[in-house]
Design a binder for these strands. Structure first.
Lengths: 272, 272
DNA sequence: CGCGTCTTTGAATGGAATCAAGAGCGGTGG
DNA sequence: CCACCGCTCTTGATTCCATTCAAAGACGCG
């Protein structure tokens, strides 16, 4: 609204090909060395060019397990990129009904849904002790104006979030409880892989109730579905420790009986 | 990617305060006189300034009832703003299961979900003979670079779409069939109001099956819920003609029995 | 160890899906 | 004008899956 005058940095924009002033270099380096920069805002930017980002991102913030990173109806000041740990975002209506909108892992950017109104719409709660990189939103806008690839990256993040919600709706409308759970585990697995972790062994950072809320079910239904998958020998899931034993079978489950994998042939296996 | 060279217009950007060349004026005028420009891309732009938009928006395209404006997996060339008529967008998975992602009315902008991959993810089908204003996407990016309020407007549209999906998920996870229908009718009503139409009398442009898909239900369930609301004397809904008889009661239904409006007191009314 | 929280499992219930049949509606053509 | 057709919509009977209510077990933490 008020133009660029709030951001003295931008009145002398950094020339793209000249060496950076020292005070920028230190911060810029942070993104370059970050393990998840390819998932975060720098997505698609040439790495040597995220000097622009470096001028943006403040020092990391620690959030204790159970604490809120932000709450609904609070003005949007920063977007937050998860550096370590994990979060859930929660949408509540006036009557106290709520759902978990998403779980967020390192590299994910929180707060995009607040851009429309400049008020947060969700509560963001840390699922474990976590760290985030704060990105001052108005400054981001200004920098993105000077550096179009950054704007593009932001556009893509928002669009991808729309698509993710599309897929969630598809799940909620078409899949049974067990299919939803299979889909959830596969989704987590893929996300761990893209962060360099194992695809078939990982730790859940959320409770059964959180999973239920995310999948549009009750926690008892999650327990029953877990028990069933365990009985089929597809996953070994005890407490929050997940081990996927038969990835193809899990994928077949997610897709429903139409899949090429013959689910009917899976026999229950006695757990020892 | 390829910079500005594809867009000769932008190599001599229009100075913000000088009179527009004639060839721009004609098109710009179109947005100014459009009945829904305040819902569309020009949202929040000073009207005298949507000269920039005028350079963007091509002449309107007509789409026949039942025809596709675009299909999934097709490269994103344009965003489309609905000028008249209405559309549905459909997301299908590999197994042929699908859902309706949204219904689109004049002023709504279609295609934002394609920005991440530059491929459309949905099919967009006209529900009646319709007209859209095509907005070439790459040109839009370039113009938005020169004219930041336009970029802001685009950001807000995307963010609002994320929020809309949040609310849809909340509905799918928490509301009964009848509450979903109430919520759907109220949503339509509000959208008609913001377009200058009656809040309590309108025509549905979609079939029962489309409504069912949107609400995560079966078409028989829609029929039953409609019959029940009719029996309660809350709506007069016959075929595709909707008349909301008791708006407060409908709102109370949407919110569930926790609302201040005493649903229990509503007695079934004999239809004549 | 004891407490509270989270998780598991069981039995009964209920709401929406499914299966099935018939009614209404609009368009077409004789 | 009416008969016919296809499509959408409506209603009924039954089934099934997830919810609800309930109680006990496991786990982590002070």
């Amino acid at each position: 609204m008020s133009g660029l005058t709030d951001f003295p940095l931008l009145e002398q924009p950094v020339p793209a090909r000249e060496p950076l002033p020292l005070h920028l270099k230190r911060l810029a380096y942070r993104c370059n060395e970050c393990r998840v920069n390819d998932l975060c805002l720098p997505t698609g930017l040439p790495l040597h060019d995220n000097r622009y980002l470096g001028t943006l991102i403040g020092s990391r913030i620690r959030v204790r397990k159970g604490a809120a990173l932000f709450n609904a109806n609070v003005p949007l000041s920063h977007l937050y990129s998860v550096y370590s740990g994990s979060f859930k975002t929660n949408l509540n209506n006036a009557e106290g009904q709520g759902v978990i909108i998403n779980f967020w892992m390192p590299g994910d950017v929180l707060g995009l849904d607040a851009i429309a109104t400049e008020l947060h719409v969700c509560d963001a709660i840390a699922l474990e002790d976590s760290e985030v990189c704060p990105v001052p939103y108005h400054r981001l806008q200004a920098v993105a104006r000077e550096f179009p690839p950054l704007q593009q990256s932001l556009n893509r993040l928002m669009s991808r979030e729309i698509i993710r919600e599309h897929e969630r709706v598809l799940m909620l409308c078409n899949l049974s409880a067990e299919q939803r759970l299979a889909s959830f585990l596969l989704g987590l697995s893929r996300r761990f892989v893209s962060r360099g972790y194992s695809s078939n062994g990982f730790m859940l950072c959320m409770s059964r109730e959180d999973i239920a809320s995310y999948l549009g079910l009750r926690l008892e239904t999650i327990c029953r579905s877990v028990a069933h998958l365990r009985g089929l020998g597809i996953v070994n899931l005890r407490g929050r420790l997940v081990e996927i034993l038969d990835m193809p079978a899990l994928s077949a489950l997610e897709l429903g009986s139409a899949g090429s994998y013959a689910i009917a042939e899976l026999k229950p296996v006695k757990a020892d």
